[in-house]
Amino acid sequence: MLTAKPSEVLHPPSRTFKTLSIPNPNPSFDAIPFLRFRRRRCAPLATAASDSLAAVANAAQSRVDILSESLPFIQRFRGKTIVVKYGGAAMKSPALQSSVINDLVLLACVGLRPVLVHGGGPEINSWLLRLGVQPQFHNGLRVTDALTMEVVEMVLVGKVNKSLVSLINLAGGTAIGLCGKDGRLLTARPSPDSASLGFVGEVSRVNPAILRPIIADNHIPVIASVAADDEGQGYNVNADTAAGEIAAAVGAEKLILLTDVAGILEDCNDPGSLVKEIHISGVRRMVEEGKVAGGMIPKVNCCVRSLAQGVRTASIIDGRVAHSLLLEILTDEGAGTMITG
């Protein structure tokens, strides 16, 4: 029979794998060097976890505070129609597009009644260039010959409108796609400058009866700015102009134009000269003084027309700023220039 030597009993061979053997089921924590080492190593991790939890709690509190502060604005606009013209940089950037869509659905969820009117300038330009046609503009409006008109209808009605409807539905809203031709929603007439602009139209009539039941059922109309005259000839209608006329026809509380600039500038060469709020008379004076030019002219004109027809306020805001729509409606600071009547 093999027997162990006394030295082997007192000093058993070391094991080939690391195991912590604790004979006492309730040892003192500090009595075990290995556990003391682990405790020192875990201390920074515990601190980091605590800091992380505090940061999460602070972020949650900030969201709750913001939501609470928005209550007066939600109460003010609840049940009111808000017409939003969507285009420009906010349409080109996928991140900003997602921001606009989510904000629109959020406003609908808290009781506002948004109407979305859209253009699609960048997409139209892209398709024209593919066809070897250089986009042309005159006084801020797209020169539209027969070929360009075909592209405008294909892009706005066939692509952009359907895409926006799908995105709103995916975000939890209920959108219905339309264009100005549907149900004679918009009737157009040739622009007074048609010799230079071609098939660019002005809005001669709006049929709000098409929109009222859609809005009343808490659906979001998504309207492409294409219209036809009484003979059925199609026209490219500036989306800002269409939004302004629709806002007036449905008795909107507010018109919002998402643009590629901060708003109306007192000095067009100084981004810091943003006019936060201005009366309609002040805007007219700026136009007369030549302080409003280029693509800003149709935007300002449509705001002035909508205010003259009963819209409470019109805002030109920076669509390049994330959540600019919520900033404009749910805060005192706003996100651009608000024009009052």
Rank of each mutant, 00 (worst) to 15 (best):
L2C: 00
T3K: 05
P6I: 07
V9Q: 01
S14H: 14
S14N: 08
S14T: 09
S14A: 14
T16Y: 03
I22Y: 06
R36Y: 05
F37E: 14
F37V: 05
F37S: 09
R40S: 02
R41H: 03
C42G: 01
A43D: 01
L45A: 00
A49F: 05
A49I: 13
A54E: 15
A60E: 14
A60G: 04
Q61K: 15
R63I: 12
V64C: 06
I66C: 08
L71C: 10
K80V: 08
T81R: 03
I82G: 02
Y86L: 08
M91L: 15
P94H: 04
A95Y: 06
A95E: 08
Q97S: 12
S99W: 01
L104Y: 04
A108V: 03
P114R: 01
V115D: 01
G119F: 09
G120E: 13
G120C: 11
G121P: 14
P122N: 09
P122F: 04
E123A: 10
E123N: 08
N125P: 00
S126R: 14
S126V: 04
L128F: 05
R130C: 07
R130A: 02
L131V: 02
Q134D: 04
P135C: 07
Q136S: 11
L141H: 04
T144D: 08
L147H: 10
T148K: 08
E150S: 13
V151W: 07
L156S: 12
L156D: 12
V157M: 13
V160Q: 06
N161I: 02
K162C: 02
S163M: 14
G177L: 06
L178G: 03
G180H: 06
D182A: 14
G183R: 03
R184A: 04
L185P: 06
L185W: 04
L186V: 06
A188N: 01
R189S: 14
D193M: 13
L197S: 07
G198R: 01
F199V: 02
G201Q: 01
S204G: 08
R205I: 05
R205M: 12
L211Y: 03
P221W: 02
I223L: 08
S225R: 13
A227L: 11
A227K: 07
D229I: 11
D229V: 13
G234N: 15
N236V: 02
N238D: 11
N238T: 04
G244N: 14
A249P: 01
I256R: 02
V261D: 13
I264S: 13
L265C: 09
E266C: 07
C268M: 15
N269G: 13
N269W: 05
P271E: 02
L274A: 08
L274K: 07
V275W: 01
V275E: 03
I280Y: 05
I280M: 13
G282W: 08
R285P: 00
M286R: 15
E289K: 11
G290W: 12
G294L: 12
M296I: 10
M296P: 07
I297N: 05
V300N: 03
N301V: 11
N301I: 13
C302R: 10
V304A: 06
S306Q: 05
L307Q: 09
Q309M: 09
G310F: 00
T313C: 07
A314W: 06
D318G: 05
A322E: 15
H323F: 08
S324H: 03
E328S: 05
E328C: 05
I329V: 15
L330M: 12
E333F: 05
M338K: 15
M338N: 10
G341F: 01
G341Q: 13
